[in-house]
Amino acid sequence: MRVIADTNRCLGAGQCVLADPERFDQAEDGIVVVLRAEAADLAEQEELRETVSHCPSRALSLAD
């Protein structure tokens, strides 16, 4: 599983960074930057699903 960020939809709320700072960061303009897209094990995948669900602009999505 991997996360995909739509930077055109990102509002810069930073919820992803607060939830998982090892996986997400923000550029100077506040737009999401994915540091680590892949989630290999089940625990990481569940954490990633939770983080994606908190994105207020729905800029994050998951792919297999």
Rank of each mutant, 00 (worst) to 15 (best):
R49Y: 08
E46A: 15
V33C: 09
A5S: 07
R58V: 10
I31C: 07
L62S: 12
V32Q: 01
E38Y: 05
E50L: 08
A59D: 08
A27M: 06
Q15L: 09
C16G: 03
A27F: 04
R2F: 10
I4Y: 00
T7Q: 14
F24D: 04
A37E: 15
M1D: 10
V34M: 08
R9P: 00
A13E: 09
V34A: 07
D29S: 04
R2D: 11
C55Q: 04
E50C: 03
A63R: 14
A37T: 10
C16P: 01
M1W: 03
R23H: 09
C10D: 00
D64R: 05
N8L: 09
C16Y: 02
H54L: 14
V32F: 00
C55F: 07
R2N: 13
T51W: 12
T51K: 13
E22F: 03
I31Y: 00
V3Q: 04
R36N: 05
M1L: 13
A19L: 01
L18Y: 02
P21N: 11
E38M: 02
A59W: 04
E46N: 07
P56Y: 11
P56E: 13
R2S: 10
L48M: 15
I4D: 02
L42T: 14
R9H: 02
I4Q: 01
L18K: 13
D25Q: 11
L48G: 12
L42C: 03
D41P: 07
Q45R: 15
E44T: 05
E28R: 08
A40E: 12
R9T: 10
A37G: 07
D20M: 07
V17R: 07
T51E: 07
V52S: 11
C16V: 00
V32Y: 01
A43G: 05
E50D: 11
R49N: 08
G30C: 05
Q45H: 06
P21T: 00
R23C: 04
P56D: 11
G12L: 08
A40N: 07
E46C: 04
V17M: 04
I31A: 10
A40W: 09
R23F: 02
V33L: 09
L18P: 01
L42E: 15
D64C: 08
G14Q: 09
R49T: 12
C10S: 02
L48K: 15
D25G: 11
D41M: 11
C16E: 02
E47Y: 02
E46I: 14
R49M: 13
E44K: 04
Q15S: 06
D6W: 00
V52Q: 11
I31V: 15
L48N: 14
D20A: 07
Q45A: 12
D20S: 03
T7C: 06
E28Y: 05
S57T: 02
L35A: 07
V32T: 13
L42A: 15
R2V: 14
V32D: 02
A13D: 09
A37F: 05
A63W: 09
A59Y: 08
E50Q: 14
A37S: 15
L60K: 08
A37D: 15
E44N: 03
S53Y: 04
V3D: 00
E47L: 06
Q15W: 12
D25W: 03
A39W: 02
A13V: 01
L11M: 13
A27N: 10
T51I: 15
